[in-house]
Design a protein around this nucleic acid. Structure first.
Length: 600
RNA sequence: GGUCCUGUGGAGCAGUUGGAGUGCUCGCCGCCCUGUCAAGGCGGAGGUCGCGGGUUCAAGUCCCGUCAGGACCGCCA
């Protein structure tokens, strides 16, 4: 070893020891006759004192080796802000291991550069403690997951990243195949099908920290390549998977966020989540629940509401505490906010601060009876504002109110930034209508109906429930999974309902169906969105912070400049333009949902 | 695909209703300085105001286009 000690590990008890440190010049304070250098290595920082001229030439981020004696700092010169603040190293020898050019970005925990420049010089960005700690936290999270899972007899098994295209779902990333020009691999959107095959194989308990790829538009919490903690178990029920998920989450948050997760984590049905919070990933850190008014307002002459009610739809409201104090401009701003979300607007009534009298454009359109009981019906007080949404499509109106609920919480400061509110969203619907009147799987077509619906989901596909569950914290979905169908007859009936003909199913999932002929065990699983989980654990608001070398919103990597054009020679060899020998199977039709796990 | 925000020395920011020398902090270079810890003092270098058009006597500032980064909607079932 080039060094004898880690700089950050030195304490007063090391005084008198001669040590050799190696690291970087984090900061230097040159007083002429005495020069202080903060020497930083992976463990932290120690102050080195030079009394020789040669240290004068040191510059920030020079990589150096220093030998010297650990001494207690003179009385009054201790630095309580530093773990090593009681001591310093009095240098007797200095060797410059490598010099550093002037830096393109400051390596300073107090200064944040722009995203593109940070990513271009990510190796410098990561010399800062914040960014480095995020990656270290993620490493520990991986370790905790492995400890928990191996404790339960799981096997870590890798699955291919060069595989076949998944019909529908997100867009695939495609890789041309030189050996068979005109054919393409797809990068997996998740290891979903492979992990089910591993259950057929009798491995019983599988997990993988798996890289997944989806070619869609990116966000603060979405990257083209991302990671799932992917898990599948045989001979278990939904409750078994949920119990495992809770153990993982409790250990992760317990150690990495210093938060004791109360177990069991409360469960809310998907329908309740939509009715009360207008979201399938409700943020339970605050109230502001939705109120359904469909029955209350039945018979109203206000056309916007009557139209929705007559169409068998939904009218509901959400209350903004103190919202009556908003200016006309602010209230108009809500209309723009709603329109930006594709809604026609957001009807509102404000309750007079002192009299509680309902006012506003909508109030004029409601009958005296409806106005009189309105405040009680929605739990509003004088000084509050009531926002309404109405639609023939229940979910659409609820989601608008759900978004308004979040916005209200933000604007009125109802969100406790230190709180962690976990819940499981269970009993998700099996199917939802497609635009052309058919049905599509909400989770994926291999998700099992629950026991209540197993034999009769065809009777009311819109009400049939699945053994599907999502784990949500603070309004973020951090994982989801389901019990899978393992019976051929049930799978056939699901395909029938989804309008997938047997030959089409064979074409798309033939290898899985074939495997399922040979005694597939009952199995179930879950996938945790690992980037998002680590983002939350590290207190960041972008998953880019927990990825070593992330890409920008445009899928560009400022460090390597990927992606790049290819040469004519590469293009020819890769067979990008070659025509396949056999015609491509018809691209996804009939609204088949992707057989991929929903985890982010 | 849509809406919005940002783009000014190496970094982070300011720049008024369009008006004469684009300013500040940090960093960088040189000198001074023996107890600092985001050290301090003095001096200095460094800018196509993202790019291209347009309006104007005059554009960092207004308009159009475009590129880049970010936030959101669509998308991601």
């Amino acid at each position: 070893m080039i060094r004898t000690h880690d700089a950050g590990s030195l304490r007063a008890s090391d005084a008198g020891t001669t040590v050799t440190l190696a690291g970087w010049v984090a900061r230097r304070r040159d007083h002429g006759g005495v020069i202080f250098v903060d020497l930083r290595d992976g463990s932290g920082i120690a102050q080195v004192v030079f009394r020789e001229e040669d240290a004068h030439a040191l510059r920030n981020e020079f990589c150096v080796k220093v030998t010297g004696e650990v001494t207690r700092r003179p009385a009054g010169n201790e630095n309580p802000d530093l773990a090593t603040g009681e001591i310093e190293v009095t240098a007797s020898a200095l060797e410059v291991l490598s010099e550093a050019a002037p830096l393109p970005i400051p390596i300073d925990d107090n200064v944040d550069a722009g995203d593109d420049i940070r990513l271009k010089y990510r190796y410098l960005d990561l010399r800062r403690s914040g960014p480095a700690n995020a990656l270290k936290l993620r490493s520990r999270a991986n370790q905790i997951a492995r400890e928990v899972l191996h404790g339960h007899g799981f096997h870590e098994i890798e699955t291919p990243t060069l595989t076949r295209s998944t019909p529908e779902g997100a867009r695939d990333f495609l890789v041309p195949v030189r050996l068979q020009p005109g054919t393409w691999y797809a990068l997996p959107q998740s290891p979903q099908l492979f992990k089910q095959l591993l259950m057929v194989a009798g491995l019983e308990r599988y997990y993988q920290i798996a890289r997944c790829y989806r070619d869609e538009d990116f966000r603060a919490d979405r990257q083209p390549e991302f990671t799932q903690l992917d898990i599948e178990m045989s001979f278990v029920t939904q409750d078994d998977v949920i119990a495992l998920g809770e153990e993982l989450v409790a250990k992760l948050w317990g150690e990495l966020a210093g938060h004791q997760v109360q177990l069991p984590i409360p469960r809310i049905t998907w329908t309740d989540a939509m009715n009360r919070y207008g979201s399938d990933k409700p943020d339970l850190r605050y109230g502001v629940e939705l109120n359904e008014l469909t029955d209350y307002l039945r018979g109203t002459e206000f056309r916007v509401f009557a139209g929705a009610i007559d169409a068998g739809g939904y009218v509901g409201a959400v209350v903004m505490p103190g919202g009556a104090a908003q200016s006309r401009k602010e209230l108009d701003g809500w209309q723009d906010w709603a329109k930006a979300r594709g809604a026609r607007g957001l009807a509102y009534v404000v309750l007079d601060e002192s009299t509680g009298e309902p006012r506003g454009p909508v109030a004029k359109n409601l009958s005296a009876d409806h106005l009189t009981g309105l405040a009680d019906q929605v739990g509003a007080k004088p000084g509050d504002a009531i926002f309404f949404a109405a639609s023939a499509h229940r979910r659409e109106a609820q989601e608008l109110l759900g978004a308004a609920r979040i916005e209200i919480a933000k604007r009125t400061g109802l969100i406790d930034a230190d709180a962690w509110a976990f819940c499981w969203v269970v009993d998700a619907p099996m199917f939802e209508r497609t635009d052309d009147g058919g049905w599509t799987a909400v989770h994926h077509p291999f998700t099992s109906p629950n026991s209540e619906w197993l034999d009769r989901f065809e009777e009311a596909p819109d009400r049939a429930l699945a053994y599907a569950y999502d784990i949500v914290v603070n309004g973020n979905e951090i994982g989801g999974g389901s019990v899978r169908i393992h019976r051929g007859d049930v799978q056939s009936r699901v395909f029938d309902l989804l309008g997938i003909a047997p030959d089409e199913a064979q074409d798309k999932f033939g290898f899985l169906l074939e495997a399922f002929k040979y005694g597939p065990p009952p199995h179930a699983g879950i996938a945790l969105g690992w980037d998002r989980t680590c983002m939350l654990l590290s207190g960041n608001d972008s998953i880019r912070e927990v990825i070593a070398f992330p890409k920008t919103r445009g899928g560009f990597d400022p460090l390597t400049s990927a992606p790049t054009p290819i040469t004519a020679q590469q293009r020819l060899e890769a067979g990008v333009d070659a025509k396949p020998k056999a015609p491509a199977p018809a691209a996804g039709s009939a609204g088949v949902a992707a057989p991929v796990e929903k985890s982010n």
